[in-house]
């Protein structure tokens, strides 16, 4: 029997949602970039992977439709997570992802800590940067979905809106996608992989658990609360199997490398594109 040195952080549903988002996002980024950069040699090569300019769009539409469905299913799932009997605590409590004043305080404390001017913040279950990651998807995805559907069905949309709204939709779709791609492939990847406390990979989202020692160091308020409520032991778990770790390391790094490949080439060829 292996010692229970880890603490459960993500359930199977959360991890499946993340995996789904990873796969659809990387497909959207690659097919989108292949079309955005089609006037460059690199963009043309990238589009060949997906069968060319036209086929890349078909894949982009399919993956986008899947994303919309995933988003709606996730929203329904989210509604089932709210404890309606204890609504206020469920929304603003420490187990909720809704931002609150503590996040502002933690951000300030952490900034001071960076420069050696104070102690690190006593973070709870969800930190402010994790909340930002979560909500960034939550408003970015509907924006991309609505503008994407507008561009997918322009004739129908033009029965309700003037045609020039498609100019705006195109601009919003492109700018939001560039924002999402650069945020995920630079900031999110750095936090999840390159940050010394995560290096070489923060496994929480794949194994579902994190080392208890690490959690105590980074999120002391969470562990303390669990101890006080007597819930810690129930959440303690064993490390993941080696074969499973190998799988998610290979998969995670494949996506990571591909993402970095896209962002580096995107930066190199950025002079060939405009935001609108």
């Amino acid at each position: 029997m292996m010692p229970k040195s880890r603490i459960k952080r993500f359930g199977i549903t959360d991890r499946l949602f993340h995996l789904f988002l990873m796969l659809t996002f990387i497909i959207q980024a690659a097919t989108g970039f292949s079309r955005l950069f089609i006037t460059t040699g690199w963009g043309k090569k990238l589009s060949y992977v997906f069968g060319g300019y036209e086929t890349a769009l078909i894949i982009h539409k399919w993956a986008g439709a899947l994303m919309i469905v995933g988003f709606l299913v996730h929203t329904i799932y989210l509604l089932t997570r709210i404890k309606w009997g204890n609504f206020i605590k469920s929304i603003f409590g420490p187990d909720s992802l809704v931002p609150n004043l503590y996040d502002v305080k933690h951000l300030w404390q952490r900034t001071l800590w960076i420069f050696g001017l104070g102690a690190p913040p006593r973070l709870n279950r969800w930190t402010y940067w994790e909340k930002f990651d979560y909500w960034a998807v939550y408003w970015g995805l509907p924006l991309l979905a609505i503008t994407g559907l507008m561009l997918m069905y322009p004739l129908i949309i033009c029965r309700m809106l003037p045609g020039w709204s498609l100019n705006i939709a195109m601009l919003l779709h492109k700018a939001e996608a560039l924002l999402a791609i650069s945020y995920i492939f630079i900031v999110h990847f750095f936090i999840g992989h390159l940050r010394p406390s995560s290096f070489p990979m923060n496994e929480g989202m794949f194994s579902g658990s994190v080392p208890l020692e690490e959690a105590m160091e980074e999120k002391p308020a969470w562990i303390e609360r669990l101890k006080k409520e007597g819930k810690l032991e129930a959440l303690e778990t064993t490390p993941p199997a080696t074969w499973y770790r190998v799988i998610y390391y290979v998969f995670g790094y494949a996506v990571l490398i591909f993402g970095i490949y896209l962002i580096i080439n995107g930066i190199i060829y950025s002079r060939h594109i405009t935001l609108h």
Partner: peptide
């Protein structure tokens, strides 16, 4: 969108680094 894009990256890249 430009201010949003540049602002988000200008805050989070140095912060995370």
């Amino acid at each position: 969108m430009l201010v949003l894009l540049v602002g988000t990256l200008a805050f989070f890249i140095p912060h995370s680094f």
